[in-house]
Design a protein around this nucleic acid. Structure first.
Lengths: 194, 194
DNA sequence: ACCTGAACACCGTTCAAGT
DNA sequence: ACCTGAACACCGTTCAAGT
């Protein structure tokens, strides 16, 4: 609200928030440091104090994205309660919600992860993986999920959930059909096809 | 081989070939019209005759990508022979081979498909979908694939295949583990989990 | 019909200088 | 400690002019 709020140390946060909005609304191609600086009311060189280059900003966005996704999965798990079938579907639904609401961010998260990345990013994505792993392991122990190597089962579930999210993002299917596909997949992974 | 080969009508093809190479080796961010023109030995404005803007070049790359992927799937099917189990796994393997060899191109193909696109692109992606559909339908009729709405079964298979490809692209798994996951998925979709 | 060269408005990045 | 302003090397795009 001040005329000079950026001398008080919140420029970094303001830039990140605006970048996340632009990423969601206009895509990564439209994300420009100079544009962010203009929106924040600072010179085009000011962001340099907080992000060494454009990639550093993208890394920070990805790290925050992993953190937020993990938070949302945990929230979904907490609401779902004790039944493992319900929990698994809640996690899948929460992941797909994130993937469709922040498709460009999720893509960025994976792209950043496959290149060289910071320890902080690694920790954030590691937490997400642990969240997934725990659910799969517990569901298997409870007999809800089909048996087999937990690592492979987790990867298969991850693949199909991410695949369904991709179908929505590319406009191949709508949310209603996505729900049916999740139900089909859940059936397959918990009961078997017949 | 001539000093002036671009007055003979092959600049478009040369630009497309070089663009495909750059996309594969260096990613879409490094793909610049001016750079392509330099490599081809023409002025920076020359590509304009063949591609209205950068997006038009990307559209052309995507269309060629759909065509080539469809060709490779048909080749894999032809080699696989008559057994539907073998054919399905051959299609999945061919798709994943394309997805890992041309990850950036495949991403571009989906991105272009979700935005506004040309009739030619629609036709090319339509042919690919038909190839998939035929395999699923035939495998279902032969009793190889689990029954149910063919459209939903096709989408589920598409999701898991694309999901596995994504896991490879992001470096989460290697080719050996990918093969095991495909085998797991094939088991799931043809026999059921137990 | 196809290509060139100059021009314009945008980038990311760097760096001396300001407060 | 943080921000500014000028500068540099790159883009994509446009357009008059050349062959």
């Amino acid at each position: 609200m001040n005329r000079h709020p950026y001398h008080h140390g919140n420029l970094r946060a303001v830039l990140l928030a605006e970048a996340e909005r632009t990423l969601r609304d206009q895509g990564i191609d439209q994300l420009s440091l100079r544009d962010l600086a203009r929106h924040a009311g600072v010179s085009h060189a000011a962001p340099r104090r907080h992000f060494a280059d454009r990639q550093a900003l993208l890394d920070a966005l990805a790290e925050a994205g992993y953190q937020r996704l993990d938070d949302q999965l945990h929230a979904a798990i907490d609401i779902a309660g004790d039944d493992h079938r319900t929990r698994l579907r809640a996690v899948a639904a929460a992941y797909i919600r994130f993937a469709t609401h922040d498709a460009a961010l999720l893509e960025l998260m994976y792209a950043v992860k496959s290149g060289p990345h910071s320890a902080a990013l690694d920790a954030a994505s590691g937490r997400l993986l642990t969240t997934f792993d725990n659910e799969v392991r517990e569901a298997q122990q409870a007999g809800t999920l089909l048996p087999g190597d937990p690592g492979r089962v987790r990867l298969l579930i991850l693949a199909i959930v991410q695949g369904i999210a991709g179908l929505i993002t590319t406009g191949s299917i709508d949310a209603r059909l996505a729900d049916e596909l999740i139900a089909d997949a859940a059936e397959l992974f918990t009961h078997g096809p017949r």
